[in-house]
């Protein structure tokens, strides 16, 4: 079993998403540490991409800031950041980025470096089940979990995806792109039952979750809750001073889902 499973050993998991390099890597490092101290169970580290087609405006802007401010961050600098973080951070860390970032680096070079710096998984929203073969063999070779998605439109695909899933399953809460939503109407409990019929691995719900109440609601049916845009907004608002606010937010959210 992968290390990612351990993130779900302490009650429901809270999974924050942070775009690396927004506004700079030093802030990212401090924000990750603050999240860990305040109860984050797993962290999604975003490697920025110029054209993030699955993201709403908040994370699009974060990608743009990360790629332009102070000359912009690179994949190599982000690997170095993870090396530094690993001296202090033991919880599972996964990368969230787009296929071209991995492909252009050289898939084997990228995924073997993930293993070297102790990245536990890879989330690629533009790699659906049909295209897993692009990276799955290398992920298996280097012990990096390739995370699978389930969406409200997945329906007849859920069984197939869930049976082959590894690490955890990323359940997309609603149609559309990432971003804060006032209301989530999808029947998560029904999706959860279908997932459970097909796999024992944990599943976490993401997209649109920002308030403790929403997180608590989602965690009733799910093993974990993923929050991206709400955290990026804190970074956008507070810039270099954001880490303490990120810490406070993570604490509040983790308490809400316990």
């Amino acid at each position: 079993m992968s290390k990612i499973a351990s993130a779900f050993d302490h009650g429901k998991a809270f999974i924050p998403f942070i775009t690396c390099g927004d506004p700079d890597l030093a802030t990212t490092e401090q924000a990750v540490l603050a999240a860990v101290e305040n109860g984050a169970d797993l962290i999604e580290l975003g490697i920025p991409f110029s054209d993030p087609t699955a993201e709403g405006p908040v994370i699009q802007e974060a990608n743009l800031r990360a790629l332009t401010l102070n000359g912009g961050v690179t994949t190599d600098e982000i690997f170095e950041l993870v090396r530094r973080l690993r001296r202090k951070v033991e919880i599972p860390l996964v990368f969230m980025t787009y296929a071209n970032v991995v492909f252009s680096y050289g898939a084997e070079r990228f995924i073997s470096t993930c293993r070297d710096v102790e990245i536990d998984g890879l989330i690629l929203p533009d790699i659906p089940y049909e295209e897993k073969e692009e990276f799955q063999p290398l992920c298996s070779k280097y012990g990096v979990d390739l995370i699978s998605f389930i969406a409200p439109t997945s329906e007849n695909r859920i069984g197939r995806i869930a049976r082959e899933a590894e690490g955890f399953l990323y359940v997309v809460s609603s149609l559309g792109v990432t971003g804060v939503r006032s209301e989530i109407r999808t029947d998560i409990a029904a999706m959860a039952r279908l997932v459970r019929q097909n796999t024992d691995i944990p599943f976490a719900v993401g997209f649109g979750i920002s308030t403790p109440e929403q997180a608590r609601d989602m965690s009733r049916a799910a093993d974990g809750v993923i929050v991206g845009s709400a955290i990026i907004r804190i970074l956008e608002e507070h810039g270099k001073d954001a880490p303490e606010y990120v810490g406070a937010y993570v604490k509040k959210m983790k308490e809400a889902i316990l």
Binding site: A54, A99, P128, E130, E131, S148, A151, T153, S154
Partner: peptide
């Protein structure tokens, strides 16, 4: 070629 798109669009 291929189909490098989010899961949400696959059934579409």
């Amino acid at each position: 070629g291929g189909q490098y798109i989010p899961e949400t669009l696959m059934n579409a």
